[in-house]
Nucleic acid binder design. Sequence first.
RNA 1: GGCCCCAUCGUCUAGCGGUUAGGACAGCGCCCUCUCAAGGCGCAGACACGGGUUCAAGUCCCGUUGGGGUCACCA
Length: 477
Amino acid sequence: MTVTTRIAPSPTGDPHVGTAYQALFNSVFAAQNGGRFIVRIEDTDRGRYNAQSEGRILDMLDWLGIVPDASPRREDGDGPYVQSQRADLHRQYARQLLDSGHAYRAFDTPEELGARRKAAEARKDSYLGYDRRDRALGREESDARAETGEEFVIRLAAPLEGQTVVKDRLRGDVIFQNADLDDKVLLKRDGFPTYHLAAMVDDHLMGVTHVIRAEEWLTSTPTHIQILEGLGWQQPEWIHTPWLLSSGGKKYSKRRGDPSVEDFRRMGILPQALLNYLGMMGWSMPNGEEVFSVQDMVQHFSWERVSLGGSTFDVTKLRWLNGKYLREKLTPQEVVARLHAYLAEYGSDLPHDAYFDQVALMMTPRIEVLSEFQEKTPYFWSEEYPVTEKAAALTLGGQDALKAVRRRLAALPDFAHDTTDAALRALADETGVKVGKLMQPLRAVIAGTTESPGMFEMLEALGKERVLARLDRVIQG
RNA sequence: GGCCCCAUCGUCUAGCGGUUAGGACAGCGCCCUCUCAAGGCGCAGACACGGGUUCAAGUCCCGUUGGGGUCACCA
């Protein structure tokens, strides 16, 4: 049986980092086993459905470079991969469960249920599930009431005694007492299945062999097992992955203000770096290496190396890792190409020429994320660049040095790195001042700031004409 | 509240009975240096607690505490 894994995101809003996390582990495990990884959109909650969301989730996967073997954009014989289009199938199996006695109709209205639940909470009942009152209804009565058009849901007739054991790959046997469980809704009044039914039906029909999902699903797994048993289907392997948390120790969530994948993209995080970072959340390479590719992960992945405590997402470390990719993992050509494409995507019209490459290369060790590039380089793109207070003071106080420097630079045949280097050092030597005393005012003038790339590469890039003009603009007398 | 999961530096983690408890990010210091970075070197920093088991426990067992999840006609 070929290994098949899946993610089943709900199209309710922004593409979630958790979805990317699950996509990573699911796709890596499938790839390692020569299996298939599929994406199924779970849109059975018509109330929370968001039309744009599906496309954005699929776009996110594209951007990350995670290619599903099947998805709504890549249908094969086992689809459709959009759950709402499979509702007939779900109804059919709900019916089968009903007929085999593994499920029953419940006619309680949502209002009744809500009231009873409130009462149970008020009584401080430990059992807050469905009280199973319609489970006692005879089939004839149930059929008759349904016949008259009375609305109902179909609930699982879960076993009342004994236990259900979840054989979790990561946690071992997790034992649930059936008495603690309740009869979950399988088919809602609107005729759509709940996640519980739909996911199990689809997973089975799509040949999913390993259900790899977040830990929050662990407690509903007994229900899933019971549905599978009711249908007479084989269980997949269950694997519940650890939590992704945000700084407060709470679940990582866009709603709490944590960045979405699109936010990271906008920030100028590389997809490789994001994937790498996600990979080290809860998993580590056997050799301890922290910088690794998806291919490395495919090669070395094992559940044994997954740690179970939740991991707190640290944007600072992600940024460091992203900088590492910029400096060490990407070739200079790749960096300039990525950077230019990024800037173009967000509205910049800088031409991609040799000058751009030159500036990009000298800035590479000085930025961690792509969005920092333009903020830190205004003086390369215009004669009107901001001047910091410190730089202004340096310009004012360094007039003598600036005059001397201007004279010396003006006499140079060209502004090649080595030429200006030799000239300024010679000037410092001759006048007996430290070379820094010359360079800091110069830097303040040509960059408007005291922080910049190396002086000589900067001079070479800017060129003689622009540099002298900038000096002339500030030299007084 | 019931049930379930989890627990090593601030953070991500290594450790799978015997270690001076290792690495990375962040922090701090030094070096390099024309500034800022990058880079190099170093400092500081953790086994939640209590019982067992064992010659030996961060590692195994139990309990406590703490954190999280779940108990929706949401996924």
